[in-house]
Simulated scan of single mutants.
Amino acid sequence: MSLAMITLFVGFGFLIGILFGFFGMGGSFLVTPALLVLEYPANVAVGSGLAFVFGTSVIGALKHRDHGQVDYRLAALMTVGMTLGIELGKRVVFLLEALGSADLVISVAYVGLLAAVGVFTLWDSRTEVDESGSDLAGRVHSIHIPPTVSLVGGNAVSVWIVLAVGGAIGVLSGLLGVGGGFLLMPAMVYGLGVPTAVAVGTDILQITVSGAYGAFVYAQAGSVALPVVGSLLAGSALGARIGAGATKLVDEGAIKGYFAAMLLAGSLSVGANELGGRLGIEALGTVSIGLVFGATVLVSTAIVFAAICALRHDGAGSWCRLVSS
């Protein structure tokens, strides 16, 4: 790998680290599409995304623990469910690879899932609905199948429901090469009624374990690009600490808004890349790369700026109103 590519991945890793610490996602929802756009094989993109998830999550988990934003019992149960699911998802990936359809299936799945979750989160951030009192969370809390586990905030939920949610997300994680954060965080916030900041910290702790397992099984198959992962981790070490600290300063509505923006940008990027490849339009490939890297730069910069505004209590400034809206 050339020096220019190493520098690019280090810088990209720093920006993703900010997003990871802020959103509780390992960053593979950006890394895997980026590697696909850069024409890495699907299995290598997936495996490298999971390896990056593991390395970054260790840093972020320690920072969120310091802020008291972790539900340890919920993280443990989600880890069990996701570990089982990842193994199944991995098997599906290698089956699709053997059939020669892995790239198409993974790309289409990314577009659909990122778009769906992104649109829903954006709608919620604009309507300012209290997720802890949502109809879905209320119905989940009303299901009394023992044993149950108490969540941070006082609610209780059946252990079997948590395991089922973790297993389903684990299958998608192993299939798409993501730590599951872009699905797990909304599942905890909207489905289980967990406060957003706690969902972020719990998500990161869970990703540490499931990401390690996912990286291990893909590494065994030789599907991890170590120079890429190493460069990304070098940049993300500082970024993750900055992002985690920002969650204490930025309000929950803004967190959801930034989260939705990243998901929608990821969806458009993978969609443009796949369409460009199918139609032979090279310009769409360029648009795809610009969306991935451009959205990462813009959103991470907005997060840092919003945190600085909060520290300065400068809500009256026009720029501060813009990034907080």
Rank of each mutant, 00 (worst) to 15 (best):
G118E: 04
A115M: 14
V157A: 09
I169M: 08
S142A: 15
W123T: 11
V93D: 03
R65G: 01
G100S: 08
S125Y: 05
S142K: 12
S150K: 15
H67V: 00
M185F: 12
L99I: 03
S173H: 03
L172K: 12
T148P: 00
T127P: 02
F182Q: 06
H67G: 02
G180D: 07
R126G: 02
V159G: 02
D124Y: 07
V70G: 08
S101P: 00
S107K: 15
V80P: 01
G81M: 10
L151A: 03
I86G: 11
I145K: 11
V93H: 05
E128S: 12
I143K: 01
A75N: 08
V119I: 15
L77P: 06
T148N: 01
G153F: 07
A109P: 01
A76E: 08
K90M: 06
S134N: 12
T83M: 15
G177P: 06
T79V: 13
H141M: 05
V171F: 02
F120C: 00
G167L: 15
W160M: 08
M78S: 10
M82E: 13
F182N: 11
S150P: 06
L163T: 02
L183D: 04
M82C: 07
G166D: 07
E97H: 10
H64V: 06
P146H: 04
L104C: 00
L84W: 09
T127W: 01
E97L: 11
H141Y: 09
I86A: 10
I169F: 07
E128H: 14
S107E: 07
A168L: 15
Y110L: 11
V93Q: 05
E97S: 15
G179L: 09
A75W: 07
V152Q: 12
T148V: 07
L175G: 05
H64N: 12
A102N: 01
E87C: 04
T79M: 14
T79E: 07
A76Q: 09
A137R: 05
L88W: 12
D124I: 09
S107V: 02
L114N: 10
A76V: 13
E97C: 05
D124H: 13
L172A: 15
L113G: 00
G153D: 06
H144V: 14
G138A: 04
G85I: 06
G118A: 02
I145T: 13
E87F: 14
S134T: 13
V108L: 14
P147V: 04
N155C: 00
